[in-house]
Simulated assay, not measured.
Amino acid sequence: MLNVFQDQASGLRRLMGCENEASSAPGHDLETLLNPIDGIGFTEFMKRLNSNRIPFLDLTHTTINKAPLDIVSEDKIVMYISQSANSIKESYGIIKHLAKTTINHEIGLLISTQNHTLAETIYRNLTHATSNFREISLVKLGYIGLGNTYIESLSVHNSNLTSQ
């Protein structure tokens, strides 16, 4: 797993154009890089993120308040959120902060909830709340039921905010 707090200076260097390397495979979206994820374990999912060098933000128990510098320049990010109001609020704050940059961000959401319906509602509400952020594209990766370690797909269709 990439440590998003490890080297904030590297994120700043990339923002300033000193480093032009992309951290994830060019031309591939999150869905292509990570799918199929339905039925895989959380550990396997983390291995896929690590092998594709996609930053992972766990917002299920931690408050971050603003996006760390080294993810601001990333075009692909995965956020792991829970059904708690604080987790949803944190994810919205980070999305809002990322929307202020000039980089287009594809943000995959992995949601820890009681059931599929609640995960869909959380995704739909975040999509609606961030619909004015043209630089942001949300991808619903799936959800993990409480007490489970296996990912289940939310649905076959993913939404890009720019198409709504």
Rank of each mutant, 00 (worst) to 15 (best):
F56K: 08
A119F: 06
P26Y: 09
R53G: 01
T101F: 10
Y92C: 03
D58F: 11
I136G: 01
I107T: 02
T60M: 08
T117E: 14
K100A: 11
G142P: 03
N158G: 09
M79W: 06
R124N: 15
R13D: 03
L15K: 00
R14T: 00
F133A: 15
K66W: 04
A25T: 14
N86T: 08
L34D: 00
S155Q: 10
T149S: 06
L15W: 10
T127Q: 15
H61G: 07
M16R: 09
E90M: 03
I64G: 05
S23P: 07
E44V: 05
D58M: 13
H116Y: 05
E74G: 04
S131C: 12
V156Y: 12
P68F: 05
Y123G: 05
E31K: 14
G27E: 02
S155R: 13
I151A: 03
K76D: 01
I107H: 05
F133E: 11
L161E: 01
L161F: 03
I111G: 09
T113E: 02
A129Q: 14
A67V: 08
G142L: 00
Y150M: 02
E19R: 08
T117W: 13
L15T: 01
A129L: 15
C18D: 10
G11I: 10
M16C: 08
F42L: 09
S91N: 04
R134H: 09
I64F: 06
L57Y: 01
K66Q: 08
N3F: 01
T117G: 09
L33F: 12
T117L: 14
A129F: 12
T162A: 13
N65Y: 10
Q8S: 11
N86F: 06
P26R: 12
S159G: 13
A99D: 14
L118T: 10
V4T: 07
D29Y: 02
P55A: 00
S73M: 08
H61P: 06
L30A: 02
R48P: 02
S23I: 06
S155G: 14
H61N: 11
I88Y: 00
N148I: 01
F5D: 07
P68N: 04
I151H: 02
L161T: 04
H97D: 15
F5R: 04
E74L: 06
L161M: 09
H128R: 15
Y123R: 05
L109R: 14
H97R: 11
K96C: 11
A119P: 07
E19W: 08
I64V: 12
I54Y: 12
I95K: 13
A22V: 05
S82Q: 06
S112V: 09
G39H: 03
S163W: 11
S159Y: 14
H157D: 13
S82H: 03
Q6S: 12
G93K: 11
A25V: 12
E152H: 07
N115V: 01
I94R: 03
L109E: 15
Y92E: 08
S24I: 04
M1K: 13
L69Y: 04
S24V: 01
N160K: 15
N65T: 11
L2E: 14
Q164T: 13
E44K: 05
N132D: 15
K47F: 02
I136D: 00
